[in-house]
Amino acid sequence: MVRIQGLSYQYPGAQQVNYPDWEVTQGDHSLILGGSGCGKTTLLHLLAGLLKSQQGELTVAGTSLPSLGGAKLDAFRGRNIGLIFQKPHLINTLSVIDNLKLAQYLAQLPQDHNRIDHVLGALDITEKSKSKVFELSQGQQQRVAIARAVLNQPKVVMADEPTASLDDQNAFNVLDTLEEQANDNKASLIIATHDQRIKDRIKTQLEL
């Protein structure tokens, strides 16, 4: 599902980060662990095609990312990768349902209301579908962000520090939801985090 080999990345004027070879099989969940500044987010961005790799091999969902470029890479990301960040980062001017429609539109998929209703129901935010984003609580916003990430049934769901700013209760709620949604959609879940609370939950780990 995800495979890296001899991958390294160097920001201008910084030291080169070399990543160990690594493989995640379809449907498996895994963590990318490490302290701040060790390159977790960079690796996640490389895997998501948000950063262009400079060296080494990088395969996601059977596609070699370095071989894709420009709009093709964007389209690939839209259909195969669901991204979740520390903050929900929803589009504030749009309603909840329009945020989800936008995800389908930008991934160039047909706008499927049944699918949206299904995902909203699964995340228990159906009654908020017409609400503007700013009317939602932080927890509801996070659920919409997860709904958006899994909506297009991606092969991989990648989350960057999804629990960092949450208390224990909410952190585990989010983690439960992420795992549940990844399983329901048969997606691999990759979480980049330094959050020690998560460590015991997912066994497959890449330590940087």
Binding site: A71, D74, R77, H89
Partner: peptide, 14 residues
């Protein structure tokens, strides 16, 4: 952020 998120959802630069 909105623009970056849209790119992450599959929008091209164009």
């Amino acid at each position: 952020y909105d623009l970056a998120i849209m790119r992450s959802m599959g929008a091209s630069r164009m």
